[in-house]
Computed example of a mutant assay.
Amino acid sequence: MTTQSPRGLAVVTGASVGIGRATAEALEKAGYAVLSASRRLPTIPPAPTGITTHQLDVTDTDSVTALESAVAEHPVPLTLLVNNAGIPTHAATIADSDITDWRSTYETNVVGAVQMTKALLPHLIANRGHVQFIGSTVGRVPYERGAAYAASKFGLTAMVQTLRLELNGEPVRVTEIAPGMMRGDEAGGEFMRERFHNDEAAIASVYKGVEHPLTPEDIAECVVWCATRPAHVDIDLMEIRPLAQAAQHKVHRTS
């Protein structure tokens, strides 16, 4: 973490596990100083030397304000924000869904991203920066028993598209990265356990016969690639699916 980081400071939210952690590590390798922000600070394995950690709850205004202060005091100027923090919802029909689930999901997945973007946008404008959002293919095509999560990702997509319009003429790039079927480390497992109430059989059925779902590292590579394009090149949207997944409901299974 020095003022000599050639690409500037990158803030990654939801960075303790999964896509967030893989992204923080990939950005550090790509030459960024990285501020890894999450509700649960990672302890194992230790973060690389170019990564500092910061406790953050994107739904809490005071927590976001404290993060902005840390960015303002950081010796490296902010050039990249990766809005990755998000939570799943329990699999349920709309008729059987829990309204609390809907509210908490929207508050984290959409309002949290808005709060972070609003807080750090002045830094990004000043430094000709880039803001990326981790969305989902379900933000364009929903599936049964996933309405609350899909609605939050549809909402995030609408916010990203609006932000791009509003920043037209400003030196800030805006990118949405939308992964399809993925399974990775503890974050992927946590997501599915939450969605299916720890029903291991239901979780296994999602991935049955799919040899190579996406991994967090796959998405991290996409984040880095988008961030390291020339400053005049803005990757508006990148949708990524495993080869086995042609669409939300069309997945090739070997068994």
Rank of each mutant, 00 (worst) to 15 (best):
T3W: 10
T3K: 14
P6D: 02
R7A: 08
G8N: 01
L9E: 00
S16W: 14
V17S: 14
I19N: 08
G20V: 02
L27K: 00
E28M: 04
A30G: 01
L35M: 11
A37R: 11
L41R: 12
P42T: 02
P46Y: 03
P46M: 03
A47G: 05
G50N: 08
H54L: 08
D57T: 06
T59Y: 06
D60V: 09
D62C: 07
T65S: 13
A66T: 08
A70G: 09
V71M: 08
A72P: 03
H74F: 14
H74E: 03
P75T: 13
P77H: 08
L78T: 12
L80R: 04
L81D: 05
V82I: 14
N83M: 05
G86M: 13
P88M: 04
H90W: 12
A91Y: 07
A92L: 04
A92I: 01
A92S: 11
A95E: 13
I99A: 12
T100E: 13
D101Q: 11
W102F: 15
Y106C: 09
T108V: 11
T108M: 06
V110C: 07
M116W: 11
K118L: 02
A119C: 02
A119Y: 01
L121S: 02
L121G: 01
P122S: 05
L124F: 02
R128T: 12
G129Q: 01
H130R: 00
Q132T: 13
S136C: 09
V141W: 02
V141C: 01
R145N: 12
A148K: 07
A150T: 11
A150I: 04
A150V: 07
F154C: 07
T157M: 14
Q161P: 00
T162G: 14
T162H: 04
T162F: 05
L163A: 06
R164N: 07
R164D: 12
E166R: 03
E166S: 02
L167D: 02
L167Y: 07
G169R: 09
G169V: 08
E170S: 15
P171C: 01
I177V: 13
P179Q: 03
P179S: 05
M181W: 05
R183K: 14
R183E: 10
G184H: 01
D185C: 00
A187G: 14
G189V: 10
E190I: 14
E190G: 15
E190D: 15
M192V: 02
R195P: 04
F196V: 05
N198Q: 11
N198F: 14
I203M: 05
S205R: 11
G209F: 09
G209Y: 09
E211G: 15
L214N: 00
P216L: 06
E217P: 10
I219D: 00
C222F: 13
C226G: 10
P230I: 09
D234Q: 15
D236A: 15
L237A: 06
L237E: 11
L237G: 00
M238T: 10
E239V: 15
R241T: 11
L243P: 04
L243G: 10
Q245V: 01
A246W: 10
A246D: 03
A247E: 10
Q248F: 13
Q248L: 13
H249A: 15
H252M: 13
H252G: 12
T254P: 02
